[in-house]
């Protein structure tokens, strides 16, 4: 440790003597790359390869049910998808679910995070118990909510102010209500936990100083808490938005996409798994991938320079 830092300091002082240092830095960097290489290779194998393969498939007429009719068709699968009203309805549905659920999750998550941060007794228990919904498998959670809202056997229709024969999954908006409720219930803890991590990094001295200067609680929240939590908020919202945009389980379990509640992932599933139309299905998958990429870029640009992991100064 000590020995390593000595030549470094020497290098800073003496310009022409910089070479041995950069040699060392270079070899360290090389070592770093070598150590990373297995992981990078595995990543390429399991992510880059399927993405490229999906793109190649999307340029073909390829249907497992018609094995003899395989041919290269250029971008015509993309034209089919993008000119279909179904695609745009599903994009709108997906964006709607994403926007509404992430907004509610963020507000609730922030409230829960503030609460957990200030919790005086039973911190561990509170933090663990809040996480329980997130620990439940999505499909199981979706079934639970579906059973609760089932018109004949669920308990919701027995509650006061709810019509006994309300068919929650028979209408677009009531179905979306249940789907979003399930999503919010399940993933708010995830956002709360990420935000809590951001909260704990804020120096209490700042609040004390602001109090001395006469700032009230609202001002402290908007002037200190929020700006300093920006990186944590970015991470939380980005992860959740990307996740929400790919929503599949809840909708599949509750409505299978009926009454206009279909998301783009279910659309892709229908083409790939139900129809075995690999060309068209891959085109849908590639478009979903591009949409997800766009969301990520918008977030990072929209939030300025505070990319997680990047040096802020």
């Amino acid at each position: 440790m000590e020995a390593a830092s000595v030549p470094a300091r020497a290098g800073e002082e003496n310009e022409p003597k910089k070479r041995p240092l950069s040699e060392r830095a270079r070899s360290e960097r090389r070592l770093g790359w070598l150590l990373c290489a297995p992981a990078v290779l595995a990543m390429l194998l399991v992510t880059a390869y399927p993405i490229i393969y999906a793109f190649v498939l999307s340029l073909q007429r390829l249907d497992l049910r018609f094995p003899d009719e395989r041919e290269f068709v250029g971008l015509s699968n993309y034209v089919d998808v993008l000119t279909s009203s179904l695609w745009w309805t599903d994009v709108a549905n997906t964006l709607g679910v994403t926007l509404v659920s992430v907004t509610i999750e963020f507000v609730l998550g922030m409230a829960i995070a503030l609460l957990m941060h200030r919790a005086i007794f039973g911190r561990g228990v509170v933090r663990t118990s809040v996480l329980i919904p997130y620990g439940i498998v999505t499909v199981v959670a979706a079934f639970t909510w579906q059973f609760a809202f089932q018109p004949d056997t669920g308990f919701v229709n027995q509650l006061p102010f709810v019509a006994d024969d309300m068919n929650w999954f028979g209408d677009r908006f009531s179905a979306f209500f249940v789907i979003i409720l399930a999503e919010v219930w399940k993933t708010t803890p995830f956002i709360a936990l990420l935000l809590l991590a951001g909260l704990t990094t804020i120096d209490d001295g700042l609040y004390e100083a602001a109090k001395v200067d006469g700032a009230n609680a609202v001002q402290r929240f908007f002037r200190i808490t929020l700006p300093l939590m920006k990186p944590a908020i970015l991470v939380a919202l980005l992860f959740r938005t990307l996740d929400a945009f790919r929503v599949f389980d809840s909708i599949f379990v509750m409505t299978r996409g009926s009454v206009d509640t279909e998301s783009v992932s279910i659309l892709g599933y229908n083409q790939l798994i139900a129809r075995l139309n690999l060309g068209l299905g891959s085109a849908v998958s590639v478009l979903i991938f591009l949409a997800v990429l766009m969301i990520a870029i918008l977030f990072v640009k929209g939030f300025g320079t505070s990319v997680p992991g990047k040096d802020q100064r």
Partner: peptide, 18 residues
């Protein structure tokens, strides 16, 4: 049935048995 739009063989059976 009020929930006809979500009915299948089993919901039909259950409702009939009710």
């Amino acid at each position: 049935d009020p929930s006809q739009s979500t009915s299948n063989e089993d919901t039909a059976r259950l409702s009939f048995e009710a």
